[in-house]
Structures are given as C-alpha cells and as structure tokens.
C-alpha cells in the first residue's frame, strides 16, 4: 500500500467524528441495573420460598414415616444393616414391588 495513502487513511479515520449515545445514557443504565437487581432479588426470594414449600413437607413426611416404623426398630436392623430403609419403612420393598412401582 502506498505510504501517502496509508497516512491519509490514518488521518481520515482519526478525524472520523464519533457518534454518541442519546442524552441520559447513564440514567438508563442505572435504571436497568436497579431493575435487574430487583428482578434478581425477586427470583432469589421465589426460589427460597419454593425450596421451603417442597422440602418442609418432604421432611415432615419422612419424620412421620420414621415415627410409624420406629416400632420395627430392632437389633436385627443393626446386624443386617438397612437402618434408614427400616426407619422409612422401605425394608419391605422387594424387587417385584419395585417393578410394579
């Protein structure tokens, strides 16, 4: 490339008047930022509520099953393992039953 053309191009581009954003750009950015943060907080709060809505009934149900099955809690459980299954009443599940489920 010709050196003179090269310099001319450099000059032309450096003088190229730059466009600007519409007035109030920083206001729009700050508004969007606060909206995004508010949306994120709302999402976190909803996620937390959903977690409690699901996990609390599950925990309550597990506790209830433990209470119901605690009578079958005997030394044989310790000998043959399956403490959790016994407590939750799952020790009676057979392979056939699992297939049905």
């Amino acid at each position: 490339m010709d050196n003179q053309h090269d310099q001319m191009l450099d000059q032309l581009l450096s003088q190229h008047k730059k466009d600007r954003f519409r007035k109030g750009f920083s206001d729009r950015v700050m508004n969007r930022l606060s909206q995004d943060e508010a949306a994120l907080h709302r999402f976190n709060r909803e996620l937390q509520q959903a977690f409690y809505k699901v996990s609390l009934p599950c925990a309550a149900m597990a506790l209830l099953m433990i209470c119901i099955n605690v009578t079958s809690y005997s030394p044989s459980v310790w000998l043959y393992g399956g403490v959790v299954e016994t407590l939750l009443g799952l020790h009676e599940l057979t392979a056939d039953l699992l297939l049905v489920i």
Binding site: R20, F21, F25, M30
Partner: peptide, 10 residues
Amino acid sequence: VERYEDSVAA
C-alpha cells in the same frame, strides 16, 4: 458510566 460512555459509543 459517564466517564466511559463516549468511548463505548465510539
């Protein structure tokens, strides 16, 4: 934002 908005725009 105000300091660099012109640079980002360009």
